[in-house]
Write a protein that binds this DNA or RNA. Structure first.
Length: 130
DNA sequence: TTTCTAACA
DNA sequence: TGTTAGAA
């Protein structure tokens, strides 16, 4: 069951293909890389090579953006997602209650207000914690 | 031809 | 974000 994961992680798509698959412009794709939302490999000639996982990531970022979430908000979402995974790996039996999760999210959600003009409703809708 | 970086009448 | 110049 890890053969597929290996395949999905295999970076082989040039940016031109990614553009067609995601309907994003090269400019946007490169910009998201600058924001560290996607980290494609590079070929010998310094050309970007994307994997299927990268495509999913790009489409996900696109969805968030379409819903009005800004870069800061998206980074925040992935930050929380990573933090959660790390958390889950360590505290194997530290069941946070539903109210705990809501309290944590509420705190971070309020912090987002000072960043830009995040679409809070969308953030609520997409945040895995809600 | 395609992609890269850097920069902006 | 778009667009473009010059290079690879």
């Amino acid at each position: 069951m890890k053969g597929k994961e290996l395949l999905r992680s295999r970076s082989v798509l040039p940016i031109g293909t990614v553009m067609k698959l995601t309907n994003l412009t090269a400019r946007q794709i490169r910009y998201y890389e600058e924001q560290e939302l996607v980290l494609p490999d590079r070929s010998e000639g310094n050309r970007r090579l994307y994997s299927l996982n990268d495509i999913d990531r790009l489409l996900e970022v696109k969805d968030y953006l379409d819903d009005g979430i800004n870069m800061a908000g998206i980074k925040e979402i992935y930050r929380q997602r990573r933090q959660k995974q790390a958390s889950k790996r360590h505290e194997e039996n530290k069941p946070l209650t539903d109210s705990d999760l809501r309290r944590i999210l509420h705190d971070e959600f309020m912090n987002l207000g000072g960043l830009d003009t995040p679409d809070q409703q969308s953030f609520r809708t997409h945040n895995p914690l809600m």
